[in-house]
Simulated assay, not measured.
Amino acid sequence: MTDATYWDTRYAESTAVWSGDANAALVHEVGDLTPGTALDLGCGEGGDAIWLARHGWTVTATDISAVALDKAAAHAAEAGVTVDFQRHDLGASFPAGTYDLVSAQFLYPRGDVPREQILLAAAAAVAPGGILLIEGHQDFGPFAEQHRSHGDISFPVPAEVLAGLRLAEGEWEVLRCETHDRLQNGPDGVPAHRTDSTIKVRRLPR
């Protein structure tokens, strides 16, 4: 099964896979930034992209799943915001241009292309003065059973993710590189602790 087929099937199985709310880490890290252009990688049903657009950002959002993108476009229309939704298998194609914010929230591709390669492309898409925000997991939390169907997933620690970005010395500022605890409702609706990680770096202005 291809990555696109897997995600199309998953998004077609239910009305909503995700809550529709923006990721809390995105809201926390981006809320005080001056809106500009934003790229949302792995946008799913559009929760983050719509939140960004509502807060004044000009948003390009991409996902591998055409089913997810159709849902996201419908949600954006309902919210009265404009988002440029594009379908990309990020290992094969990547949105053009540079952006003031590039966000990769829990992006774990199932294909043959390493996550590190996609994050390198994400860093290259950050404009001078812009932010790259990467949110990841450090454990499965209450979703170990569901994640087994996703295939092999590794959760590198923040320092490893940062090193994999190969940021040129003197061109970037590291704002956050750390793990943090959060509560997340499990499949049974019971809150459980989960450890996530945040990488937030800024490309210095020229």
Rank of each mutant, 00 (worst) to 15 (best):
T2S: 08
Y6S: 06
T9H: 13
A12V: 00
E13I: 04
S14D: 15
A16H: 13
V17M: 05
W18Q: 12
W18N: 10
W18C: 10
S19I: 11
G20P: 01
G20E: 05
D21F: 05
N23I: 10
A24V: 14
A25L: 11
V27D: 06
G31S: 15
L33T: 10
P35A: 02
T37P: 02
A38D: 07
A38E: 03
G42V: 09
C43E: 04
G46E: 10
G47I: 13
I50Y: 04
I50W: 03
L52C: 07
T58R: 13
A61M: 05
A61S: 01
I64C: 06
S65H: 00
A66Q: 11
A66L: 12
V67M: 00
L69P: 01
K71Q: 12
K71V: 11
A73W: 01
H75Y: 12
A76D: 05
A76P: 07
A76V: 07
A79G: 08
A79K: 08
G80H: 10
T82G: 11
D84K: 14
D84A: 15
Q86S: 02
L90S: 06
L90P: 00
G91D: 05
S93I: 00
P95L: 11
P95A: 08
G97S: 08
A104I: 04
Q105M: 05
F106T: 03
F106N: 06
Y108S: 08
Y108V: 12
Y108W: 12
G111D: 14
G111Y: 00
D112E: 14
D112V: 12
V113W: 02
V113Y: 06
Q117G: 06
A122W: 00
V126L: 07
P128C: 09
G129K: 09
L132T: 00
E135Q: 08
Q138H: 11
Q138P: 06
D139S: 06
F140L: 10
P142I: 12
A144P: 00
A144N: 06
E145P: 03
E145C: 03
Q146M: 09
H147P: 08
H150G: 09
D152V: 15
S154R: 14
F155N: 06
A159V: 12
A159L: 10
A163F: 06
L165Y: 00
E169G: 01
E173K: 09
V174C: 04
R176I: 01
E178A: 08
E178L: 04
R182D: 15
L183R: 13
L183W: 15
Q184H: 10
Q184L: 12
D188A: 05
P191G: 01
P191S: 04
A192F: 02
A192Y: 02
D196A: 08
T198D: 05
I199R: 07
V201S: 03
R202N: 05
R202S: 07
R202A: 08
L204P: 03
L204C: 09
P205V: 15
P205W: 15
R206S: 14
